[in-house]
């Protein structure tokens, strides 16, 4: 598979920091039958950014935009990691040694192990390093 196949489109939504905003986003996605695989909230003064990996990013984008939300696509990668002590270290160390900077990251732990979602400054180098070390990247097609 080409490196491109591992670039996953994450949706990022600008949200004011007040009660009900996440519910509004979640409700819109429910109505569009969009499933969320993983998500995180980054918070700053007075606002936040909700980031999510979903099965239908375009549908999510259109619906949220039509409701007035600011939505953007961001490229991220997802790495399968061992769900045991040292699993995160393996991946983080790999990227550190390759000189790849992690801008942000979040993870989920499923039945078949953990998945680390990463926003990095040089995705191609990150993909090469991870594959070179025999670690498993999740293809974007897995989320569709």
């Amino acid at each position: 598979m080409a490196a491109d196949d591992y670039i996953i489109r994450q949706i990022s939504v600008f949200s004011e920091n007040r009660p009900g905003r996440l519910a509004a986003i979640a409700h819109a996605l429910e109505e569009e039958c969009v499933n969320i695989f993983a998500f995180s909230i980054a918070e700053a003064s007075g606002f936040g950014v909700v980031r999510a990996l979903v099965d239908h990013p375009d549908r999510a984008y259109e619906r949220l935009t039509s409701e007035g939300f600011n939505v953007a696509f961001t490229d991220v990668i997802a790495v399968r990691m061992r769900d045991e002590p040292g699993g995160l270290f393996e991946i983080a160390n790999l990227l550190g040694e390759a000189g790849v900077n992690i801008e942000y990251s979040y993870a989920y732990s499923g039945l078949d192990g953990g998945v680390l979602i990463l926003r990095v400054d040089r995705p191609e180098d990150a993909i090469a390093a991870i594959r070179g070390a025999g670690k498993e990247l999740i293809a974007s097609s897995a989320f569709a």
């Binding site: 990022s12 700053a44 950014v49 980031r51 926003r119």
Partner: peptide
């Protein structure tokens, strides 16, 4: 209000606008 075109996923960019 943050304009759509100016929105980026990066908190740092938004804080820069602020």
């Amino acid at each position: 209000e943050v304009k759509r075109e100016a929105f980026s996923d990066k908190i740092a960019d938004l804080m820069h606008i602020q």
